[in-house]
Write a protein that binds this DNA or RNA. Structure first.
Lengths: 114, 114
DNA sequence: TTGACATGCAAGTATTCTCTTGCCTATTAT
DNA sequence: ATAATAGGCAAGAGAATACTTGCATGTCAA
């Protein structure tokens, strides 16, 4: 989990993820072409993304294709978003109730306690 | 967004978030008491979390209460999880289809192309 | 084989983080 | 007022990161 957040903590690496999302399976050269980083910089960032399992590679002759792997992002969701969003959902539910109460004067919302 | 990921990229800070999630509104001293970091270390980490808007503070006399703010986590979800999970969902849908096809011999699933 | 292309590797430097140390201010209780 | 408690501030050391440079390896086409 540490490698994952560390990997995401750099703007250049997040840009790379966006590029791969827009066009998956790019080679190193293709990625470099549209970014103002040196090739070596991109290589090193890609290595960090690989270590975090956010990018998978496949060799094709002398080229190296890079593919996005969204699974670790899902892990973040389950460990750090789901768990922490409950208060927010509760707040939204309460807000909704209050709006409904104010608008129609009803105390119970449809569906009741659920 | 950069401050946010940077804030989450440290294990100590993630521990602090967990502590606040377990027991919201703790003072600096309370947080220190159960962590093997120095008070100054905790202070600095909390400052980073504040800068990322993950923690909100409230003064009470000479004490400082710390509250978790999950909204930035939701922002991560919308920018980095939602957007990237589609391939995964597609994969799951395909898997489901294949399972249904194998189990019942049907080619089309309910709901059609959608 | 030879030249061009795509990528790999490693060392050096500069920047940024993290942790520690030492002292200071503000509030509470006696 | 005094002591104890809760927290604040800032400089410095050490570690981790990010970026750059130079050269090396492997692959393709002619």
């Amino acid at each position: 989990m540490d490698l994952l957040f560390k990997a995401l903590a750099d703007p250049g690496r997040r840009t790379l993820l966006d590029r791969l999302h827009a066009n998956d399976g790019q080679t190193l050269g293709e990625l470099c072409r549209h970014l103002d980083m040196t090739r070596q910089g991109v290589t090193q960032h890609l290595a960090v993304l690989e270590a975090a399992n956010l990018v998978a590679v496949q060799r094709r002759g002398r080229e190296k294709l890079h593919f996005l792997n969204p699974v670790p992002l899902q892990d973040i969701y389950e460990r750090w978003i789901c768990k922490f969003e409950r208060p927010r959902l509760v707040a939204l539910r309460d807000l909704k109730r209050r709006l409904e109460d104010g608008g129609r004067g009803a105390t119970r919302t449809k569906g009741g306690k659920r």
